[in-house]
Amino acid sequence: MQWGQIKTLFILCFLVLDIFLLRQFIETREPDLSFIPETSIEEGLKTDIEGLDLLTDEAMQGSYLYGSRKELNDEEKEELEQFENQEIEVLPGDLIVSKLTEPVSYDEDNLQSFLESNVLNGENYVFWGKNDETNTLIYFQKIKGNPIYYNQSGLLLILLNDQDEMVQYTQTILKNEDDQQEDYDLFTDTEAIMHLYNNTNELNQGDELTDIKIGYHNLTPLPNGGQVLAPTWKITINENRNYFIHAIEGNSFPRDDKSFLEDTIIEIRGLIQDSNNGSDVTKEIQENFSEMIESTNWSGD
């Protein structure tokens, strides 16, 4: 063969090789990132669970909250004294106990206005539920507009009598501390329910999502009363089951009214006992709590 022909062959070979290399090069420069799935509602979840149109899948940022039991200042104590129809005691640990001299009838429509004019910072409490066994109304405190779920330090507990009238209440107030916190990307509501669906066996076919809300939640306070509160999704299923999903880490926490109430009532009764406050108000509440603890079946459903 002629040198000229060999050159032509080489040119063709290298042309093919270069085209191949060029293609490789371009591919490595634009790495294929399609393996990162976009958040979309999984088929399984879609077919099993109803009410998913509540989800917004909106991206959010949030941070941990730091709180501690609020110490009441003189102004606030004065405000407490102004409330009509109430005998109020402030016990150590800044626990407010109050007796309504005349029972007030309990009516879902007027409750919020009752709080606003009869309870300190009443507008900051949001109705959580009524517990029939202990005959109490549970209110959770809000910080920055979001409820703090199941926290003994931000709780309003209203006791009802047999005629469903409000007779007594106990209140604790949580104070938000240092505000400049690191922001985290939070799980969206869709991601939260996907976590619940994928990592637990709690959701069954036919269940309906009835509410999903962001709030704050923790399991343990510090010994000095300090609280680290994590942004947490509350997911309500069929209007009666609640699940809590840590919005930064994704783990789920089962919480229920009953065991929370049991712990809380025992705790408050202990505080009242320790305070040695001999007033009628505290005595009466203590008796009521003792009766509740004994008469309620805490273990069963």
């Binding site: 399991l219 343990t220 930064i248």
Partner: peptide
């Protein structure tokens, strides 16, 4: 997981408790 979120305080026995609200 988020060490910067952790707060701590001493209990009555003098032990130092760390928590992020969930873990201790």
């Amino acid at each position: 997981d988020n060490p910067s979120a952790v707060r701590n305080s001493k209990n009555a026995a003098g032990a130092n408790i760390f928590t992020d609200g969930i873990r201790t």
